[in-house]
């Protein structure tokens, strides 16, 4: 979206107008300066500091936190390489699996499918229910002692599929369960979003194509996807941003410590654990890792944005 034209003619502002603009923007601008500008500058500062437990003061330690981070990353049995891999796999899972499936499902759903409106309402439910409740019901369903899914697998003679330690405590299945949770809880919202975009495609364009003998598959690839490019782009971009922020489902389903022990940590989980749970002493390490993420992540996000804008341009209709 670009800044649009101003309806008012350019002229010298009155005192009243200046006061109005200042008053209206006072809170948002102060908030922005404090919670974005200051906080980010302080993050950089914090990453070069350390907390002295004896004096209770912060002192400058140069690149020590970055060095500690590097040692953490490269030491034997480090959880960080796996956490970084996991975080990137969330991005790939979203952009290469969830979004394409959502687009296909939304296309079919938009073709006057029986009970389509009912499906949309049901599919939307995970978007309004808190992640706490969603993760809890999900873990109950797969609980190895009482969950309906293991009971069903057992009845079907597939009990060998159930890991001895349970789905969430086994290193073989824990991360897969997190990805599966992402699909289960996220795909419905994406389907509703894309269906909304498809219904806004002008009917006459599709009709003209149909007269020219366009098959459903061709309609999907040559009309639907290009016309909803901006919506698909938005969903793909959301996938990019979760690389550095995905941790809540992991923490709620697996628990912070368990997640790392079963190889299901993420970048954000590592930072949150350092900032929130490990105490003040570990905060600078979290900040240092955060700065590294911002340095690596910003170009990734912008390159993705550029690629999306190039291959999925937004059409006005």
């Amino acid at each position: 979206m670009k800044v649009g034209k101003i309806y008012r003619k350019k002229r010298k502002k009155t005192f009243g107008e200046i006061v109005f603009i200042c008053v209206m923007l006072a809170i948002p601008v102060t908030h922005f300066c404090l919670f974005w500008v200051y906080i980010n500058i302080d993050s950089i500062r914090l990453s070069f500091q350390s907390f002295d437990m004896n004096s209770g003061a912060w002192r400058y330690v140069g690149f020590m936190n970055y060095r500690t981070f590097w040692q953490e990353l490269t030491k034997a049995e480090s959880v960080l390489p796996k956490s970084i891999l996991n975080s990137f796999s969330v991005f790939l899972w979203n952009d290469l699996v969830i979004v394409p499936i959502s687009v296909i499902c939304a296309y079919v759903l938009s073709k006057k499918l029986f009970f389509a409106s009912g499906f949309k309402v049901i599919f939307f439910l995970p978007a309004i229910i808190s992640v706490t409740v969603l993760t809890l019901v999900f873990s109950f369903m797969f609980d190895s002692t009482l969950g309906p899914v293991p009971i069903l697998l057992d009845k079907l003679g597939l009990s060998s599929w159930i890991p001895f330690e349970g789905f969430f405590a086994s290193g073989k299945t824990a991360w897969g369960m997190i990805l599966f949770y992402g699909l289960w809880s996220g795909i419905g919202y994406d389907i509703v979003l894309v269906t909304g975009a498809i219904t806004r495609i002008p009917e006459d364009i599709v009709e003209a194509g149909r007269i020219d003998g366009l098959t459903s598959i061709k309609e999907f690839f040559y009309i639907t996807i290009p016309m909803i490019g901006s919506t698909i782009g938005t969903l793909l971009m959301l996938g990019t941003t979760v690389i550095f922020s995905y941790f809540l489902p992991v923490r709620l389903i697996l628990g912070g410590d368990n997640a790392n022990s079963v190889g299901a940590g993420t970048i954000a989980l590592y930072i949150v654990t350092n900032v929130r749970d490990a105490g003040t002493v570990q905060m600078p390490l979290g900040a240092a890792f955060g700065i590294i993420c911002a340095i690596i992540g910003t170009p990734i996000v912008f390159i993705c944005r550029k690629l999306i804008d190039r291959f999925l341009p937004a059409y006005e209709y």
Partner: peptide
């Protein structure tokens, strides 16, 4: 500065700021 602030507001929404949690907590 209207255009600059607007563009900045859009751009910064895309920058990953996970690391700012520590500074925010400290503040």
């Amino acid at each position: 500065g209207r255009r600059a602030v607007y563009t900045a507001a859009l751009v910064i929404m895309m920058i990953p700021t996970t690391g700012s949690m520590a500074a925010m907590y400290r503040l």
